[in-house]
Amino acid sequence: MSAPELAPRSSFGGVIAVWIAAAVLALVIGVVAPSDWRAAWMAVGLGACVIIAFAVHLAGGHALGFIQRVAASVLGAMLVMGLIGVGFGLATLFAG
């Protein structure tokens, strides 16, 4: 029999950490990748964010709400990477 936790830690930090990793990956991809291949590399970066989300939340050790935390992490990462990708797309469009 296991005893319940008295004061469970907040797991929102793990979600934010994945969003920050997504922003860093999107910025690196946007700067390094050629504009023709940027969308393909963004998909690879999102796949990396899924793996990062699983790793971060598995390392937390909390089973309760695991699926919701991973889903929030991946959805937020997709939105962050999408907004940064739109920014790079508009910059490419108007740069000439």
Rank of each mutant, 00 (worst) to 15 (best):
I29A: 15
A21H: 05
S2D: 09
L58R: 13
S73V: 01
A26E: 00
A21P: 05
H62Q: 06
F88N: 04
A17R: 10
W37A: 13
G13K: 09
M78H: 11
Q68A: 13
F94M: 09
A48F: 15
G87W: 10
S73Y: 01
V80K: 07
S73I: 00
L46F: 15
V44I: 14
V31I: 15
H62M: 02
P8S: 08
P4S: 01
I29D: 07
W41H: 09
R69Y: 04
M81L: 08
G47T: 05
S10A: 13
G47I: 02
W37Q: 12
F94K: 04
A26D: 03
F54N: 06
M81S: 07
A48V: 15
A53M: 12
V15S: 10
E5Y: 06
A59E: 00
G14F: 03
M78N: 07
G60I: 06
R9Q: 12
W19L: 06
A91P: 09
W41S: 08
W19N: 02
C49P: 10
H57G: 02
L75A: 14
A71W: 11
A22E: 04
P4N: 02
A95Q: 14
V80P: 07
L46N: 05
T92L: 05
G45W: 05
V31D: 04
L79R: 08
A72W: 14
I29C: 11
P8Q: 05
G14A: 00
M42Y: 15
A55M: 11
H57R: 01
D36G: 05
L6C: 02
A23P: 09
C49S: 13
L75E: 02
L93C: 04
V74Y: 11
A77K: 00
V50P: 06
F66E: 02
I20R: 00
A91D: 13
A17K: 12
L83P: 01
M81G: 09
F66I: 04
S10W: 02
V32H: 08
L83Q: 01
W19D: 00
D36Q: 06
A91F: 15
H57M: 02
S10Q: 06
G82E: 03
A63N: 06
S11F: 11
L93R: 15
G82H: 09
L25I: 14
M81N: 04
I20G: 03
G76P: 06
A55E: 04
V56A: 04
